[in-house]
Design a protein around this nucleic acid. Structure first.
Length: 289
DNA sequence: ACCCATGTTCTTTG
DNA sequence: TCAAAGAACATGGG
């Protein structure tokens, strides 16, 4: 779940809990999430003071007093927490940093261990090394249009590509395309300027709204498509309101796969592109069963 | 017991 | 060189 809004929420939490404090201990419960040898991490962190935090896309930075950075990437299931006594450590805490004056430990929680902890010399160096594009909250309409118009690829995978812009994940891309009324299988170079403008505006709205609600999906505005995603079923058992478009109460939200990722759209808001070799061959294929 | 989900990276195939 | 598809990673939850 950790896309840009979650990571921004984690960053703010870390800012509250850890900035100004010195790292006095490092506890590695599962080295799997370390992308740096434990010894190196320990040597780089112990005795260092955390001077601030930063974020680029889905990556969270803890600035150290020597200019270097501790970089956290949360994978698919990462989270951040804090605890005082070892028995109170959150379930699935993989790594923890002991903080000097609060007596708290900051926990890197990650059940599925796709998250990674690394070090970097600077945000710029990290951005370059990981080939990250501009943050999704920073990219301009013009930049977005230029990058999309160069590519003859479905717009959804393009928006998920962290080198194009950093921070958008699966549900946000669906939400943004829904808000901008663009089908996920439109080709990047087929988008009109006014569509890219709408897309850019939607990215801003969806991200800032999600951050305002601390990425708590249940509290998002009812006109958001996210309420139609399957995992919301459990929140509203017995209700099928969520399977309909927020703008068209009689139109059912469709689910299919784009680039291997579960994708939700409103067929009325987001018309299927007229010409595309991919859709043609799909239509031509006989239905099995 | 099986399938799904999430993000990234790598491999294969065209 | 690029694009697209698939797999792998790890594992809890439905």
């Amino acid at each position: 779940m950790p896309e840009l809004p979650e990571v921004e929420t984690y960053r703010r939490f870390i800012n509250e809990v850890a900035v100004g404090q010195t790292i006095t201990g490092l506890e590695v419960r599962d080295a799997h999430v370390l992308a740096v040898p434990e010894d190196e991490l320990r040597a780089a962190l112990l005795g260092r003071t955390i001077t601030g935090t930063g974020r680029l896309g889905k990556n969270c930075f803890l600035n150290l007093d020597n200019g270097r950075l501790l970089v956290l990437h949360f994978g698919m299931t990462g989270d951040i927490g804090a605890y005082r006594d070892a028995p109170d450590a959150p379930r699935f805490t993989r790594v923890a940093w002991q903080l000097s004056d609060s007596g708290l430990s900051l926990a890197f929680i990650d059940p599925r261990k796709f998250g990674r902890i690394r070090l970097a010399d600077s945000a710029e160096a990290y951005q370059k090394a990981k080939k990250l594009g501009p943050d999704a909250l920073q990219i301009t309409t013009i930049e977005l249009h230029q990058k999309l118009s160069r590519r003859k690829v479905f717009v959804k995978p393009l928006l998920l590509d962290q080198s194009l812009t950093a921070g958008l994940g699966n549900w946000i891309v669906d939400e943004v395309l829904f808000q901008a009324k663009i089908h996920p299988e439109r080709l990047g170079n087929s988008l009109l300027e006014r569509e890219t403008t709408a897309l850019h505006a939607a990215i801003q709205v969806v991200l800032t709204t999600a951050i305002q609600h601390e990425a708590n999906y249940r509290h998002f505005p009812k006109e958001f498509l996210i309420h139609a995603r399957e995992w919301d079923d459990s929140a509203t058992p017995g209700s099928d309101a969520h399977t309909f478009c927020p703008r068209h109460p009689k139109v059912k939200i469709e689910k299919f796969y784009v680039g291997g990722r579960a994708t939700y759209t409103c067929p009325k808001c987001q018309p299927t592109p007229a010409v595309s070799s991919a859709t043609e061959s799909q239509v031509a294929l006989p239905e099995t069963k």
